[in-house]
Structures are given as structure tokens and as C-alpha cells.
Nucleic acid binder design. Structure first.
Length: 799
RNA sequence: GCGGAUGUGGCGGAAUUGGUAGACGCGAUAGACUUAGGAUCUAUUGCCCAUGGUGUGCAGGUUCGAGUCCUGUCAUCCGCACCA
């Protein structure tokens, strides 16, 4: 049996037929219910597709194909996130223009995607680096600017010395550059920010309204990192100045024995004349600034710092004079860059106090402060008017009331999330449409001048001065101020990689529109995205950014839903055959196109969904691929045994069970068990030796979202009308998913002894007696209980 | 430290949510067909002192019955992190 079908021929044939018939085109406005399925569009790298892309896209592909068969008007678009550093770095190396490389890569990618047979609507294809696309990226930016959500600040920023570029917090997680994985350093620089923190609460609240996996939501909540506490003013001794701190435990104020400022705190420079040990302070600050983020956070064990000699603070609740230190365990970027230290109840402060011999005053009972800080609940002591309170909530409330009355403290909220550092000193990105005018300040490029196109340059190398290559082009830089008409200069930095992807799902609704980012009626029809699948690594990057932009556009009345994605899912990583992460250096990378050539696209698609739990990391197995190919070959041979038996009803319940299982499993992304169910059915069919034509057509339909090419081929050979892809998804009859005769277990004291066959409607008494009969020789002692779980087990309890 | 998970054969992984543990696939073993087999087909395949016993990281507990629930414990993975 099992001659192998010619996958290369079959797949090419049907890809051409689908394209010719245009069956995957989404219709704007239709009486059918709509389904907008989305996968993260790729960066078109020169290396082409990775097996990870295949896994990421195949899930929504299966769902989209099923929805079409269920009568939905489906939009499943694809495009390219085509601005970015790799093309630019390649350009620096070879001198080829990034636009040329990008166009070539997009072509290559498109061809590869088509080879896999995805049911994308290619008419909606887009690329973020096309001027007619980034015109609208710039347009949204100008809207943000108009609404005061763009600002420039001179602060410490994450900087990648290798890429020579400023990075956002999201782009430098773990102290490593997102692009090249070099250590990120802190650098003082004037950069553009988007005020994403203004949307922190909205981004949090929005999570309650969407269907995201719990861990995805949790990760976003943690990233936003909302904390409620209080700002408290400490006055300095003999100086008319206050030092403001942020704390979540203002009720421990009586336990404050010192204060710590971040080394970069501006107050230090302001009062350096008063510092007797300024040299020592300067030296310490210098060592800190040289540390990378990585070093600064890894050396957690050893607290370092310098006491400010000449400046001290007054504890506002008891008037005691307390010393001030600078130490790098306090960060300038969170809160106010200064803390009140309560060594008895904060482990970091405790370690510092021990090292520097500072008093430790217990204000909450319950721990042993001779050993370590105690951060639990307990009775308040040594705290004047708070003494005796046992509840954290009460003591905080009482202290807050006191501070507010005295005017030295106020309620405050802090977020770990920082504003989005938005400019990159690079060429291959959207030019930021702003103009610096010496008279008018910063002015937006007029809307009618968009797109502000990237000028042609010869040298893509970023300047050593930290400027983008655009700064070297006088004809681009020099311009007239749109407000006063005087000479002015353009902003020469470009937007980060994430800009274009922050709204691309909107453009898919109306990709050719030149008058708006998309027609509002079309947006209203298609949005929100019904199902969005992508990588876990984008949860605190692309997902946050795009939700922010979308929420902003909602507030401006441009889109009609507050959240862009109704449902989000993610795929697990595909590991190399050795179980390690795939990487070029390890040489364990699998090229999906090799698999297509050798086994076919249907096999590849089937395998990535069958290989394991969709959400889990699973190693690649070439033998597993072969197993899927074997299944498809055996499936393709089914027409040989069609209607071998004249009246064949023995498969009826197996077929209905499989329809139910496959239909339900797809919805829950349990593709592996859906495929397993079809493999089981195939085994049943061969065991039976025959299958009738109608059942085979049902089987073909069930498999078609996974392996569409071979299914079209078989459907055609059986005389099916049109395409399987546009045929109706099979329904099952619940009554037929139940067998008439069933096998149940017989247990004694919960231990399996044997199994018996009974009728599915067997009465309890009869089932029990049949069970007892079957284990009669093993029964000894008194029967104390008889349990029958219908359709499952008989359990005889003896003593 | 905080947050999220996970632990089941030689391997990837199933288990209708408290009811026959190991579906399906891989690998392995034996046989068939073959000039050949790394193709295909058939059979077997958790482990063990095998008419039975035992088994879901480990130790307890609840229950007629526990991979599933409870308590404790160990290990691994992922994300964030001197966040005040």
C-alpha cells in the first residue's frame, strides 16, 4: 500500500488554483459574520523564514480556514515590519541601500510564505517602510505631539554602545540590547519620549475587558508595576530645601534612621559647596556611572555608598537629625531618586545599616531585627500616635492623614513602566516629523507635507557624535519653520522599530487609503482583531506599545474600540533537535524550506501543530516530521478502499467523535490532540478495511485546515464541488458520538481487576451484578459498598 | 526577592477535570515483502522476582477511588528585579 503522493506537484497546483479563484480575499462589509485573524507580521530578514514563523502562523491559519468553512467572512492578512537595524547594518557592510535589500527580502519572504500555502489575503499586503504606509505612522505621531504626549527630556537613558543607539526600557530588558545583546550603559542624553505612563491606568483597566491568557495579563501588570504610596518631604538641616521621597510604607516613618539618594540626584550638585567630602562623593559617582546596568543589579550582595559630610535631614515626625548617603542601590529612575531608609523593616536598608553602623529602630513587632529586616504585619511600636495599631492599612491611613494635615506629605502613585524613549540615531526608520525653530521652538511638520520621506544617503554609518546619518544631509536638515517661515532645522532621528507595528492591524482594514490611516466605516466593520497570535517575547514590547497607540486613537475618536485585540494567544518556542534554543552558532537551526522540499508543506504544517503542546517549548524531531508524512501518505491512499464494503456503518460513531474532537480542540488550540484524533480515525479506517465516500469527504474536510493541498487533491478526485477550502465544515450528531456497547472497569477497593462490556444504558443493578460476576473468584470478605459510575466503573468495596 | 508556570515510559506528549494512567507520534524488538532497505506492511513495547505486584519528582493526608484535591518538600524553566 501507501504509494507516496507527489507533494511538490500537488501543492503547486492548488496554490495556483486558490490564487486564481481568489478565495481568500476578505470582503469589506458582508452579511456573513466577520472574523479578523492576525499573526505578528515578520521582519523580513535576509535569512528567510524560520520554523518559529511556521508554528506562529499555522495556528491562526487553521482557525481562519475553519472559520471560512463555517461561513465567516474572514480577513487573514500578512505584511512586513520592514524598518529595522539588520537591513541597515547590512547596508553599512555592503553599501547596498536598505530599501533595495528590504525589497529583495520581502520578495523572498512572500515567495516562501506562499510555498507553505497559507490562506493570506495578499491583496492587503503592506510594508511599514513604504512611504504610503509610514505617512500614517508619522501622522499618528503628530497627533500624539499635538496632544502633548510627546516631550523631550535630558535624562539618563539606556544606550547601546554597539548599535550606537538610545534604547527604551522595553528594548533593554535584563540590561541587554534587544538587537545585539550587548550590555546597555546609562548615558545622559536629550531624547524624545512618548508619555505612555499617562496611559498606564488605561492599559491596566483594558486588560479586564480582553481574552488574554492569565500569564500574559500578569506579565503586563507586572511590567506596568503600579504601586500606591506616599510622597514625603524631609527638610534639610540649616538649608531651606526639602528632599522629597516616595514610600509605600509611610507608617514606618518613626523607624527612619537615615536617607539615601541616588548618585545622580541633582541636589548633590546644588549643594556641593557644603560637602566636606565632595571629592569622595565625586569618585563614588564616577564608579557608579561606569557600571553597566548588569553590574549594578548583579552585585546585589554588597551594598556600597558614601555618607554626605555636611548635609543632613530632619525626620518630619520626630524632629531627629538623620544622615544622608548616596548609594547606587537607589535608582534615579524610580520614585524621586531618594528614599527614607527603615532598616528594621527593609532588607536592603538593613544590610546598608549594618555595613555603615547605623541605628536600627523596630516599629513593627513580629520579627527578629537582630538577624534581619522584618517586612510582615504586626503591632506598631515606638511610633507615637501609631502605637498599638495592628493593621498596615490603618497605620498607613493614619500617617497619611497626619502628613497631609501638616502639609509635608501626599498620596502618590508610581509605575515601574517608564515613558517610551522614542528616537533612534539611525537611518532606516520613519523620520520623526518635527522641526526645530530657534524662534518657535519645536514645530510639527504640517500634515499636508506627509509623508516626510527618507532622503537618499550614501553612508549609513551613524555619526560618532551620536547623530543619525540624516544629520549629515544638509538638504534634509535645513528647512523653513512652518510657523514663522524662518530658517529652521529638521529633527534627524528616526522612530524605533516598534512604531510601524503599533498600528498595522488598522491598516489591513483599508491598506490603499491615501486620505486616512483607514476608512472609519471599514475600521468599524473589522475591528477589533478577533484572534491575535504571537510570541511571548512581545508581551512587554509590541503588545503594550500597540495597545497604547490604539487606546490613544480611541480617545481621539479615530477607532471605535478601546482595545485592539479581543483575544491573544501565544506559541511556544521550537527548540533545536538537541533541546537547546536554535541558534546559528550552535548549528542546530532547521530551515523550514528544506522540510517543504523533502516532505511537503502539508507535512511541515501538520508537524509544527502536532509536535507538542502549542504553548510549550518543544524540540524539533526529524523523525516526528517523517511520522506526519507517513500519516499523510496513508491518508492519501484512502481512495483505494472507498466503498469496499457495500453498507458500511461501523465507522459512523468514530467519524462523529472525530468531528467533535477536532472541532473543539481547534478552538482551544489543542492542535496536537486534534491531529492525534485524526490519526486514530485513520487507523480505525484501515482496521475496518473500508470507508464510504461521504465519510471520507468529512475526513478530508477535517484535515483540510492542517494539510490543505492534499485535501483539495483528494476532494477533487472524489468529485467534490469547488474547493474544500470553501466547503461547509462538518457537523456532528451528538447521539452518534456514543457507542451502544461500552467497556467499563471493574475494581475491588478501587483497584482495577478486569473490564467488562455492557450496554450504554445498562441499569445500575445489572451493571453491578455483571461486575461482581466478572471478579467473583477474587472477592473475599464482606461487601460493604457497591459503586457504579455510569459508563466508567464498577467498584466493589470489601472488608 | 516578586510574578508565572512545569515535573507522567527510552523521547515528544495524552488523560472527558476525582473514575480503566501512558491516547497519538517517535524510537526499539521480532516477523513479512524485497537484489537491497534508512521504503512499506504485521505484531509487541511503562517497570518488576509475571496467574501477581508496582507505577505520574519526593513525604504525608482526604476519598470506595488521586496524575488530578489538601499540607509540606525538592527540582527545573520563563519573565521582572536593590521598584523604596
Amino acid at each position: 500500500m501507501a504509494k507516496m503522493y507527489n507533494h511538490a506537484e500537488v501543492e503547486k497546483k492548488w496554490q495556483a488554483k486558490w490564487e486564481e479563484a481568489g478565495i481568500f480575499k476578505a470582503e469589506d462589509f458582508s452579511d456573513k459574520p466577520k472574523f479578523y485573524g492576525l499573526v505578528e507580521f515578520p521582519y523580513p530578514s535576509g535569512a528567510g523564514m524560520h520554523v518559529g514563523h511556521i508554528k506562529a502562523y499555522s495556528s491562526v491559519e487553521v482557525i481562519a480556514r475553519k472559520r471560512r468553512m463555517q461561513g465567516f467572512n474572514v480577513m487573514f492578512p500578512m505584511g512586513f515590519d520592514s524598518f529595522g537595524l539588520p537591513a541597515e547594518n547590512y547596508a553599512i557592510k555592503t553599501g547596498t541601500h536598505p530599501a533595495v535589500i528590504t525589497a529583495k527580502n520581502i520578495e523572498h519572504f512572500t515567495e516562501q510564505l506562499k510555498t507553505v500555502g497559507y490562506s493570506f489575503d495578499w491583496d492587503r499586503d503592506l510594508a511599514t517602510s513604504n512611504p504610503d504606509y509610514y505617512k500614517w505612522t508619522q501622522w499618528i505621531f503628530l497627533k500624539l505631539f499635538e496632544k502633548g504626549l510627546v516631550f523631550r527630556a535630558n535624562t539618563l537613558v539606556n544606550y547601546c554602545p554597539n548599535c550606537k543607539v538610545v534604547l527604551s526600557n522595553e528594548d533593554s530588558q535584563g540590561g541587554k540590547c534587544d538587537v545585539c545583546h550587548s550590555d546597555v550603559v546609562q548615558k545622559e542624553k536629550s531624547v524624545w519620549y512618548l508619555r505612555i505612563t499617562d496611559y498606564a491606568d488605561k492599559l491596566l483597566e483594558g486588560l479586564d475587558t480582553v481574552d488574554f491568557p492569565e500569564n500574559v495579563k500578569q506579565q503586563e501588570v507586572n511590567w506596568i508595576g503600579k504601586s500606591e504610596g506616599a510622597f514625603v518631604d524631609f527638610s534639610l538641616k540649616d538649608i531651606d530645601e526639602k528632599l522629597e521621597i516616595y514610600t509605600t510604607r509611610c507608617d514606618t516613618l518613626f523607624g527612619v534612621t537615615f536617607m539615601v539618594m541616588a548618585p545622580e540626584h541633582p541636589l548633590i550638585d546644588k549643594y556641593k559647596d557644603r560637602l566636606a567630602n565632595f571629592d569622595e562623593v565625586e569618585k563614588y559617582r564616577e564608579t557608579c556611572s561606569k557600571k553597566t546596568e548588569f553590574e549594578r543589579t548583579q552585585l546585589v550582595k554588597d551594598k556600597t555608598g558614601v555618607k554626605l559630610d555636611g548635609i543632613s535631614a530632619i525626620n518630619p515626625v520626630n524632629g531627629k537629625e538623620i544622615p544622608i548617603f548616596i548609594a547606587d542601590y537607589v535608582m534615579m529612575g524610580y520614585g524621586t531618586g531618594a528614599i527614607m531608609a527603615v532598616p528594621a523593616h527593609d532588607q536592603r536598608d538593613y544590610e546598608f545599616a549594618v555595613k555603615f553602623g547605623i541605628d536600627i529602630i523596630e516599629v513593627i513587632e513580629g520579627g527578629d531585627i537582630s538577624k534581619e529586616a522584618y517586612s510582615g504585619d504586626g503591632n506598631m511600636i515606638n511610633s507615637d500616635f501609631l502605637d498599638g495599631l495592628t493593621n498596615k492599612k490603618d497605620s498607613i491611613a493614619k500617617m497619611l492623614a497626619f502628613l497631609e494635615e501638616k502639609g509635608i506629605g501626599r498620596r502618590g502613585i508610581q509605575y515601574k513602566m517608564k515613558d517610551w524613549a522614542f528616537n533612534r540615531q539611525r537611518y532606516w526608520g520613519e523620520p520623526i516629523p518635527l522641526i526645530h525653530c530657534s524662534r518657535c521652538g519645536v514645530v510639527g511638520v504640517p500634515y499636508e507635507e506627509l509623508p516626510l520621506t527618507l532622503p537618499d544617503v550614501k553612508n549609513f554609518e551613524p555619526g560618532e557624535d551620536g547623530n543619525s546619518p540624516l544629520a549629515k544631509i544638509d538638504s534634509f536638515v535645513n528647512c523653513k519653520c512652518p510657523k514663522c517661515g524662518g530658517d529652521a532645522k529638521r529633527e534627524t532621528d528616526t522612530m524605533p522599530q516598534w512604531a510601524g507595528s503599533s498600528w498595522y492591524f488598522l491598516r489591513f482594514c483599508d491598506p490603499g487609503n491615501d486620505n486616512a490611516l483607514a476608512d472609519s466605516e471599514k475600521l468599524k466593520y473589522w475591528m477589533p482583531v478577533d484572534w491575535y497570535n504571537g510570541g511571548m517575547e512581545h508581551v512587554t514590547r509590541h503588545l503594550i506599545y500597540s495597545r497604547f497607540w490604539h487606546r490613544f486613537l480611541y480617545d481621539q475618536g479615530i477607532v471605535n474600540t478601546p482595545e485592539p485585540y479581543a483575544k491573544r494567544t501565544y506559541q511556544g518556542l521550537i527548540l533545536g533537535p538537541d533541546g537547546d534554543k536554535m541558534s546559528k552558532s550552535k548549528g542546530n537551526v532547521v530551515d523550514p524550506m528544506d522540510i517543504v522540499r523533502e516532505y511537503g508543506a502539508d507535512t511541515l504544517r501538520l508537524y509544527v501543530l502536532f509536535m507538542g503542546d502549542y504553548g510549550a517549548a518543544t524540540p524539533w524531531s526529524e523523525n516526528g516530521v517523517k511520522g506526519c508524512k507517513r500519516f499523510l501518505d496513508r491518508f492519501a491512499a484512502l481512495p483505494d478502499i472507498v466503498d469496499k464494503k457495500s453498507s458500511d456503518t461501523s465507522l459512523e460513531s468514530a467519524v462523529h467523535k472525530t468531528i467533535k474532537k477536532v472541532s473543539e480542540d481547534i478552538e482551544q488550540m489543542k492542535f496536537n490532540t486534534a491531529v492525534a484524533a485524526m490519526m486514530t480515525l485513520l487507523n480505525d479506517v484501515y482496521a475496518n478495511g473500508s470507508i464510504n465516500r461521504d465519510d471520507l469527504i468529512v475526513f478530508i474536510k477535517l484535515l483540510s485546515p492542517f494539510a490543505p493541498h492534499i485535501c483539495e487533491e483528494m476532494y477533487e478526485s472524489l468529485g467534490g464541488e469547488g474547493f474544500v477550502a470553501t466547503s461547509a465544515w462538518p457537523e456532528y450528531d451528538p447521539a452518534k458520538t456514543v457507542d451502544q456497547t461500552i467497556e467499563i472497569a471493574v475494581q475491588i477497593n478501587g483497584k482495577l481487576k478486569t473490564t467488562i462490556m455492557i450496554d450504554k444504558d445498562e441499569p445500575k443493578e445489572s451493571a453491578i451484578s455483571k461486575g461482581k460476576e466478572a471478579v467473583a473468584d477474587k472477592l473475599s470478605g464482606n461487601i460493604v459498598k457497591e459503586i457504579y459510575v455510569p459508563g466508567k466503573i464498577v467498584n466493589i468495596v470489601v472488608k
